[in-house]
Design a binder for these strands. Structure first.
Lengths: 106, 106
DNA sequence: ACAATAGGCAAGCGACAGCTTGCCTATCAA
DNA sequence: TTGATAGGCAAGCTGTCGCTTGCCTATTGT
């Protein structure tokens, strides 16, 4: 299982997700073509393929083979866990305002 | 303005956000100590300081100077833009099911 | 004043991520 | 059957990231 956050770190991978949001279920060649014409991305097919592998390992896309075509579908569910990780009611969040914690020394 | 997604890519930076979620408004030395004792992170003070710089550049933390202390506060608002970017009503998302788009050739 | 504390700046280094290149297999259409 | 298409595998290169190291300034307490 790849790292979700690291998968999102690359701008090209984010634009791949943009492209799949606009038109889901594309093949590798389709994605390459549309990234080139609509997003000014000049990477090679292999580069895009490796990006898709990372996105799939992170659970952000699922693939479906059909003959010689491999369709890529976006799965946004992992994204919803991101904000939740640090989302916490303001009342519950303790803030140390006056003096720093002096208990830890070295 | 640093890249939000790249700031989240590093696991140590994510644990810094965890730590600030649990106890907001810590100083650099406090964060170092608590990361070491509670999260088994052995990085140097300078390493943590550089991480804090990245988080601040991404808008995920804001700092407040007070004498020789510099308090770090988490700001989760940028996080909420992440899921929204690819969140789109299912009805609005077009999915190309049958045949790939053949319009783009090389 | 002076030592201790909190933090900052910058150079250097090793590891890895992203990309390219070359070649391969599988499927389909003529 | 054979050429074209869709995709896969793996090695190599390069720039960047995270970290360390060394030294610096600023503030505070005694």
């Amino acid at each position: 299982m790849g790292d979700l956050y690291q998968a999102l770190a690359d701008p090209t991978r984010r634009q791949i997700l943009d492209e799949l949001t606009e038109r889901d279920g594309q093949t590798l060649f389709e994605i390459c073509g549309r990234l080139a014409t609509r997003h000014q991305i000049t990477s090679s097919r292999q580069a895009i393929s490796q990006h898709l592998d990372v996105l799939e390992a992170a659970g952000l896309i699922v693939t479906r083979r059909q003959g010689r075509y491999k369709f890529h579908h976006i799965d946004i569910r992992p994204l919803q866990t991101i904000a939740e990780r640090w989302l916490r009611p303001e009342s519950d969040r303790r803030c140390h305002e006056d003096q720093p914690d002096q208990r830890i020394r070295r």
